[in-house]
Amino acid sequence: MGEFSLAHWLIVLLVVLLVFGGSKLRTAGEDLGAAVRGFKRGMRGEEVARRNNEPEA
């Protein structure tokens, strides 16, 4: 009890597709991907800024 099998996940996926539709899910996926890329770029920028502000030993 409490475990989800592959059949359960397929049913959940089908219901989500029926409720939201493929185009909305694709748009949400693209937005999520853009947000992750922006976050990674921001983190890389902070690392570079920290390295540039550190005095050399």
Rank of each mutant, 00 (worst) to 15 (best):
A35F: 11
S23R: 08
E3F: 12
L17H: 01
E3H: 11
N53D: 08
F39P: 01
L14E: 15
P55I: 03
A57L: 14
F39L: 10
E54H: 06
N52G: 06
V16W: 00
E3S: 07
E56T: 10
F20L: 12
K24G: 01
L18K: 10
M1R: 14
M43C: 02
L10H: 07
D31N: 12
E30I: 04
V19M: 03
G33K: 08
G45S: 09
V48G: 00
V36Q: 05
V19T: 13
V36N: 01
S5Y: 06
L13D: 12
V19R: 09
A35I: 09
R26D: 11
G2S: 13
L18N: 05
E47H: 12
G21H: 04
R37Y: 13
A7K: 05
L18T: 09
W9G: 04
V12L: 06
R44F: 11
V12G: 02
G21N: 09
A49C: 00
G22F: 03
M43Y: 06
I11K: 14
V48W: 04
L14S: 13
L10Y: 06
K24I: 05
H8M: 03
D31P: 01
W9R: 15
R44Q: 09
A34C: 10
G22E: 02
R37W: 11
V36I: 09
K40S: 08
S23H: 07
V15G: 03
M1I: 09
V16G: 00
E54Q: 15
P55C: 02
W9K: 14
V16Y: 00
G22V: 04
E30M: 07
A7G: 08
L13P: 00
S5F: 08
S5N: 14
N53I: 05
S23Q: 10
L13N: 07
A35N: 10
